[in-house]
Design a protein around this nucleic acid. Structure first.
Lengths: 177, 177
DNA sequence: GCTAAAACGAGACACGGTGTCCTGTAAAGT
DNA sequence: ACTTTACAGGACACCGTGTCTCGTTTTAGC
């Protein structure tokens, strides 16, 4: 192991610049050129550690934003409220952008599933088992329909993903008993 | 009204070429250049009538594929089976591509909602009212959760959108009475 | 028929983002 | 000191986009 070590400062500057640009210009309008310029770093440095814009923002999401998620609240209502609340800010815009880009990048799709979507699915399933699980229904199907409604609204934008949706879903799921 | 009329032959050639290329290369890899070349038409002709690749394929979807959809079957099960079956071929790939692209094109998003998503939502709602509607639950929420599960699986690809899903959803919705 | 108007196929062009390569410099281990 | 690797900065070819021009073809109106 020889040579100059990786600059942790540059790494952080790049991740923060990426998030800042996503907030200002929207995920689709962010370019690697702009990220490098905003971070005050060379483009080669960026390409050395990441392959694409999606790569950078996937790491930014797991590293910077993920801690803001509830570990595993006891009841379905608060779990959904807290999850939906996060979709309001930059995190929502970035995650939607990543999902869109994953449709033309199977590699990104795989990492998105295992690093972001999968864990969230597991967390919701756990809450359902503990809190208000109808024993006779397939839990994975319930998970699909709950997070499905969330993603459907995030992508199609016909209705907001807010506390009211969390409440309505909670009531509906409880009525399944 | 003077001048040479629009060539209906070129129009059809372009729409069919677009679908053919989507099937062969996948929606994200299709370019306007390639569509024009495949259709044997000039690029200016393409830009005269459409603005983007998404524009072309949105028209191709409504004109060529939409007739394959069930008008409005009486029961939820067959409605979902027929709808889900369509997502298997080119139509599925194109619609997913359009939804992804709509995330960076608000104009496309609007047309996608009014021309494709909206009508399907209305049709499902109608089936629910007629067939197996739980009177106490918000129908729009049920629609969100059913089509949400479909879109969630189409985009995240963690499970197939097939007849089994249609069956499971039907059973679950009926249990809401 | 003749003319004006609009569409046609074909191709040139500038623009912008991507990804690679190069240069000179800085920071680590040996 | 010497080697190795990362760094900032910039040059470069590549490709898709969208606009423009060219010469040709097809229509309506006179």
């Amino acid at each position: 192991m020889v040579g100059r070590p990786r600059s942790e400062e540059s790494r952080r500057a790049i991740l923060q610049a990426a998030l800042r640009l996503c907030e200002r210009d929207g995920y689709p309008n962010v370019t690697l050129k702009a990220i490098a310029a905003e971070a005050g770093t060379g483009r080669q440095t960026l390409y050395r550690w990441w392959n694409t814009k999606a790569d950078v923002l996937l790491e930014a999401m797991t590293a910077v934003v993920a801690p803001g998620l509830p570990p595993s609240p006891p009841d379905l209502g608060s779990f959904l409220r807290e999850t939906f609340a996060l979709t309001d800010g930059v995190a929502g815009r970035v995650v939607v952008g990543l999902m869109a880009e994953a449709q033309s990048d199977p590699d990104l799709a795989e990492r998105l599933r295992t690093r972001l979507i999968g864990p969230r699915r597991a967390a919701l399933r756990e809450v359902l088992e503990r809190d208000s699980a109808p024993s006779h229904a397939d839990l994975d199907l319930i998970v699909d329909m709950i997070f499905g409604a969330m993603w459907y609204r995030l992508l199609n934008r016909h209705a907001p993903v807010d506390a009211l949706l969390a409440e309505e879903i909670t009531v509906l799921v409880r009525s399944l008993t």
